[in-house]
């Protein structure tokens, strides 16, 4: 088998909180191949963003740290690599776009300057060459009249346009991996669709692998080939998107899917009431306990779930589920 582009193994990220040390990511493993797109799904506070920040080496200083496990990017171990090397990788090989396009651009520089800056820092382009590339990139992310808009300040752009600028910046150096942390959460639905189309097109053109972090099952179905469902810092279920939506093997995934109206509507003709996954994600201090953390919200809970953390059960086509009752779901 070919070596995956990014191989995360038994990753454990700890946060120091007032109640002590909590594993926000607990024994997470996954692979990402070149040009593949993978999606992290889960509620707020499940560790999706922490995974992204962990890969980028941007965990909150002095609070978060990678306690054990490995993040291997293209043969390089990112958990032990020097800060200098990590800075060279960030923005060049792995780049990231953020949730809030309104605040993730620097208000005092024009968008052109910000895009050009990335190119000059990583690719050593001259000022003029970087500026021209910035115009091309704005054009590529379909900002009309790029030549003029390149000298606009962020406040002169709408939310959707700013997110496009972020994408242009992230893709400026043709990275191997693009991490998109809830890229459309702050945008309205029509703009969301445009952004996803854009990301899909750019992925086809550049061969960039995409890690999409979202809580929107619809976005996953549209964007990703494989998905990882996260719950309370652990991988609940992994596998091909179609297969998981078709037949989830974890009660949490099942709950998430039944929360999305249009996916259900495709499967059945009758109008079911929209369901919800009752309850909330356990507090951080309960993370890492040797039991199924979803048990308190699960309809299939048994004594076994409360006594021991469920192991990964493997299914066909790489689907796996961390549930004692995976077979029965």
């Amino acid at each position: 088998m070919i070596q995956p582009l990014l191989k995360v193994q038994n990753l454990r990220i700890e946060l120091t909180t007032r109640d002590g040390i909590a594993p926000v990511i607990d024994d997470l493993s996954f692979d990402l191949g070149a040009g593949e797109s993978i999606s992290f799904v889960g509620e707020s506070g499940c560790g999706k963003s922490m995974t992204a920040l962990g890969i980028m080496g941007l965990l909150p200083e002095k609070i978060g740290r990678i306690a054990s496990g490995s993040i291997n990017f293209n043969g390089e171990e990112l958990t032990t690599v020097s800060q200098k090397r990590l800075r060279a990788i960030r923005g060049n090989d792995i780049s990231m776009i953020f949730q809030e396009p309104m605040t993730s651009l620097n208000p005092v520089y024009t968008v052109g300057e910000q895009i050009a800056e990335v190119l000059r820092a990583h690719q050593g382009l001259s000022k003029a060459a970087a500026w021209n590339s910035a115009i091309e990139l704005l054009d590529a992310v379909r900002i009309p009249n790029a030549k003029r808009r390149v000298s606009d300040y962020p406040f002169q752009m709408s939310g959707g346009q700013r997110q496009r600028v972020m994408i242009a910046m992230a893709l400026a150096c043709k990275p191997k991996i693009l991490i998109a942390d809830e890229p459309t959460t702050a945008l309205d639905v029509t703009v969301q669709a445009q952004i996803f189309d854009l990301l899909n097109d750019l992925k086809r053109q550049t061969g960039t692998a995409i890690i999409l972090i979202t809580h929107d099952m619809g976005a996953v179905a549209e964007m990703a080939e494989r998905m990882i469902v996260m719950y309370a810092g652990r991988g609940a279920e992994q596998g091909p998107v179609d297969q998981i939506i078709d037949h989830p093997r974890h009660p949490y995934t099942k709950g998430l899917i039944s929360c999305v109206p249009h996916i259900v509507a495709d499967l059945t003709n009758e109008r079911n009431d929209l369901t919800e996954v009752a309850g909330i994600v356990p507090p951080l201090r309960e993370f890492g306990q040797d039991r199924c953390l979803f048990a308190s919200r699960c309809s299939m809970v048994s004594q076994q779930c409360l006594d021991k953390r469920p192991p990964e059960m493997k299914f066909e086509a790489g689907q796996s589920s961390a549930c004692w009752h995976a077979e029965a779901v």
């Binding site: 960030r90 060049n92 953020f98 993730s104 651009l105 910046m169």
Partner: peptide
């Protein structure tokens, strides 16, 4: 703590 600072960090700023 603002997002554009994190974004700059994520694009490799020293």
């Amino acid at each position: 703590e603002l997002e554009y600072v994190t974004a700059s960090r994520a694009s490799g700023a020293t």
